[in-house]
Simulated assay, not measured.
Amino acid sequence: MTQPIAIFIGYDPRERASTNVLIDSLYQHSSVPLAITPLVTPQLEGQGLYRRERDPKQSTAFSFTRFLVPHLMGYQGWAIFMDCDMLARGDIAALWAQRDEQFAVQCVQHEHEPGETVKFLGEVQSAYPKKNWSSLMLLNCSRCTALSVDYVNSATGLELHRFHWLAGDHEIGALPEGWNHLVAVQDPAKADGAPLLHWTLGGPWFREQRTMGEGLAAEWFAARDDAFRLWD
């Protein structure tokens, strides 16, 4: 039997609702078994794997824990990392099928230059090259050995998110942008048929952003209601 797809989801206690809806949407659309692990910071701290102090520019609890995925995989095989503020509309197996051994990492290579200085809950919106590339990654773990526990705990945020731990950009493969559509950032027309939505500025699970993405917000609420509806 083929091993389940290993998926790690960034977890922030303020976004529990989005995490649960994302997990359900992944299961509902997947044609193959999944092994989903939320990256809960206190658990990683308890294992001695994460020991960073909170960075003032760190907008979520999982800003840096995502880079522990290769270690958690024993630097073997492939894994998917994704932010929790997403919604799957397509079969994640179709993303998994795009793994390419010539790359260490594959991601949607956005050209996102934020015009705002704050995002959800007043968190700082930082601008830097490769913004949002690390929010959805296909990781070829055997080629990510530079992401040791010590490195993840000592490197700067820019070194991590700009992939300075790779030999160069030639190790980063591009994925179709529909696999990380940035809601309320990219042209709304590009959301049509996009298999994965990403509320990078904050989503409808926050009271102040109930309508973020307009029709896409309604779609998220429909997915939430379906996930938690009671059966007779």
Rank of each mutant, 00 (worst) to 15 (best):
F206W: 15
A174W: 13
A174M: 14
A184Y: 01
L216F: 03
H164I: 06
H110Q: 06
P188R: 00
L166D: 04
E111G: 04
D150N: 04
G115C: 00
R143A: 13
S126E: 11
M137I: 08
K130Y: 12
N180Y: 01
H198R: 13
Q209I: 12
L158T: 04
G178K: 04
W165L: 06
R210C: 11
G178Y: 05
P176H: 00
T145D: 09
S135P: 10
Q209W: 12
S134D: 14
E214G: 02
N132D: 12
R99D: 04
A218D: 14
L216R: 02
Q209H: 08
L196I: 12
A104E: 06
W165M: 06
E123M: 15
G193L: 09
L147Y: 02
Q102H: 09
L166E: 04
G193Q: 10
D192M: 07
E208Y: 03
E171F: 03
G178C: 05
K130D: 13
N180L: 03
V108L: 11
T200F: 11
T145I: 15
G202A: 15
V105I: 07
D100R: 06
A97K: 09
A174R: 11
S154K: 11
L160E: 10
E111K: 04
D187S: 07
E171V: 05
G203A: 00
S148T: 13
V124P: 05
T200Q: 08
F120S: 08
V118H: 14
T200W: 10
I172H: 09
R207A: 11
Q98L: 07
G173T: 07
Q186G: 08
D192S: 09
G168H: 11
L158K: 03
Q102N: 11
E113V: 10
Q102F: 14
M137T: 08
W133G: 06
G215Y: 00
Q109P: 06
A167S: 04
E116F: 15
F120Q: 07
G178R: 03
S154Q: 13
P114Q: 02
S142N: 06
D192N: 07
E116S: 15
A146I: 02
P176R: 00
R162Q: 10
L138A: 08
Q102E: 15
G178P: 10
M137N: 01
K190L: 14
G203L: 00
S135L: 13
E113Q: 06
L136H: 01
L147A: 01
A191F: 04
L196F: 08
A218G: 15
P114T: 05
R210T: 10
V152Q: 04
G215P: 01
S134K: 05
S135F: 12
Q186F: 07
S148F: 04
V118R: 14
A218K: 14
H164N: 05
L139W: 05
E177Q: 13
A174S: 14
R210A: 12
L216K: 01
H110P: 07
C144Y: 02
R210G: 09
G115L: 00
A194V: 12
V152L: 04
M212E: 13
F120D: 15
D100V: 07
V105T: 03
V105E: 00
T156W: 15
L95N: 01
L121T: 13
P195N: 00
L95D: 01
F206L: 14
A146M: 01
G122T: 13
A146P: 03
E101K: 08
L182A: 06
H170P: 07
